[in-house]
Amino acid sequence: MRQFLERVLHTLLVLWAVVTILFLMFRLMPGSPLAAYLNDNLSEEQQQLILQQFGLDRPLYEQYVIYLANLARGELGVSFFQRRPVVDILMEAFPNTIVLTLASLVVAYIFGVIAGAFLAWRRDTWIEKTAVPIVLAVRAAPEFWVGMVLLAVFGFGLGWLPSGGTNSPGAAYDSEIERFLSLDFLRHLALPMLTLAVYLQGLPLLLMRSNMLEVMHDEFVTMARMKGLSEWSIVIRHAARNALLPVLTAFTIGVGISVGGNVVVEVVFSWPGIGRLLVRAVSSLDYPLAQGAFLLIALVFITMNFIADMLYVLLDPRVSHARVA
């Protein structure tokens, strides 16, 4: 329990630090976007209004307090260019990112776990010896480049799949769920998901493989053999079950990393998610939107790290009991 509270406190501290870094970054950096924005052909009045609205006419520490207070109320300001609350814009983009992230992670981890367990089981065979360098090479490939190649081949070349966006123009749906389940959406999802999965499968595969190799040497696996249990039971019930713990943690952390790491793939496939939003906001100097998008990504990242910690505690009886005791 104490550890849990410590962990929560630590997470909050980190969150605060990140928020503060962001504040300083956006106010103190050379080429602050405000100048560009205020140089627009706005009237004196409008300019004053915006300055007041963001509290930009006050000293830095006051701005900081206002900033924190706004954040605490979930108030992220209004986009310079879209003239809409940042929160609304983020909430439109976020589901797209989450769906893409989860779909690709699930595919990548299912594949990676099975392939990793298989390679460990067939260790020292030519399959294993060739597969590992290939996996490393695939992991070394920039995601956006993999996306470009897949897009050129399957999107433009063969014309099997659409080349970007989430839905064909003109399609209308009653609800978000219905939209996500539509064939049209899934066809749009296929390529970006595949691109991310190609990159993401490497980690669970390598993790699973090395954990399995380690666990297969553990005495309880030898004992299972002596008991005459079936190979299936030994590999799956005992070895894989133990090797899976760190992989689940990696999955959770992976969700956090991918939400921000998807940026480039979202751009390649014009996927209207948070990452693409961030890139657009940054390039068009839409500072409230960029700040909001970054904060959301960071929040998800930090939260998932926290959950990963907690999950480990829940899933590994050794750790959970040690913490309770």
Binding site: V18, M25, P30, G31, S32, G260, G261, F294, I302
Partner: peptide, 23 residues
């Protein structure tokens, strides 16, 4: 602690924002 914080910044988004601001 500083290391923890640096590791808690989402990598690519941070690099993007920073390189955009630094030019």
């Amino acid at each position: 602690r500083i290391a923890d914080i640096a590791l808690s910044l989402p990598f690519l988004p941070f690099v993007i924002v920073l390189s955009a601001f630094l030019g």
